[in-house]
């Protein structure tokens, strides 16, 4: 479990030729409690992936800071990128095993995850022989298998068919409830966000900042009931008209 404090004063990227740098994030502040599940919801291209890269320590070129609690080390991060990013020269199984720190190798856990995701039969294949949906599932397994203290997910269920997406969503919640860890989940699907999150963070177009923070108070047991989710969603949009523009 990890506490996360994100403060980004300014993040720019080089602009197109002849134009100045482009401001992606300005005055963004997000605090996450230990073990919290937060969904970032916002229009595509607003800088959500940039934010996750900053949190993961992949992008250090910004003004501000990311803290993981007082005196805490870098958390063990599981990161599901928008594209699967598997090593094509290593088999499915090797891809998962390689990501695990040597003191955390848990063969049974990997076996279990592969089975739940329906990938046991292809574990010794090379990723180029898999479909995109299968590769994405491998990337998700890799993130779960390292037993992260901080899980970053960047629209992980895109291009999964609806039944698979539902199954993987349930697995995610199950894994999260069994072994509490902090989750930062990026999506542009409001319904998905409501099903999963403790808290929704709505983000604006660039420069990106938080325009609304909403706690989802639906009990976890009721999250599989579509009418409940739908009514929550409707109320939300009625109460915060600016959200309509984002979605």
């Amino acid at each position: 479990m990890t506490e996360v404090q994100i403060e980004i004063a300014r993040k720019t990227v080089p602009g197109a030729k002849g134009r100045g740098p482009h401001l992606v994030i300005a005055d963004l502040r997000i605090g996450m409690a230990r073990g919290e599940f937060a969904c970032l919801v916002g229009p595509s291209g607003c800088g959500k992936s940039t934010l996750l890269n900053i949190v993961a320590g992949l992008d250090r070129d910004f003004q501000g800071r990311v803290d993981f609690g007082v005196g805490a080390n870098r958390p063990r991060i599981g990161y599901v990128f928008q594209n699967p990013r598997l090593l094509p020269w290593r088999t499915v199984r090797e891809n998962v095993d390689l990501a695990m720190p040597s003191d955390l190798r848990d063969k049974q856990l990997v076996d279990h995850l592969l089975a739940v995701m329906g990938l046991t039969g292809v574990q010794h294949q090379y990723p180029e022989r898999l479909s995109l949906g299968m590769s994405r599932r491998v990337a998700i397994i890799r993130a779960f298998a390292i037993q992260p203290t901080l899980l970053l997910m960047d629209e992980p269920f895109v291009s999964l068919d609806a039944p698979t997406a539902r199954r993987v969503r349930q697995l995610l919640i199950k894994v999260w409830e069994e072994r509490a860890h902090t989750v930062l989940f990026v999506t542009h699907d409001l319904r998905e966000a409501i099903v999963l999150a403790d808290r929704l963070l709505f983000l604006s177009e660039s420069p990106m900042r938080v325009i609304a923070e909403i706690r989802v108070d639906i009990p976890r047991r009721q999250r599989d009931q579509e009418p409940v989710i739908d009514s929550f969603r409707r109320t939300l949009i009625d109460e915060f008209p600016p959200l309509r523009g984002l979605l």
């Binding site: 992949l58 991060i77 990013r85 090593l87 890799r142």
Partner: peptide
């Protein structure tokens, strides 16, 4: 670059990155 970032996020370390990500 994507794979190098992945290796970094998953804390592969120098040796593992060299052997499994860069060398191939």
């Amino acid at each position: 670059r994507d794979l190098l970032e992945m290796a970094h996020a998953y804390a592969f370390g120098r040796l593992k990155t060299l052997r499994h990500v860069i060398w191939p």
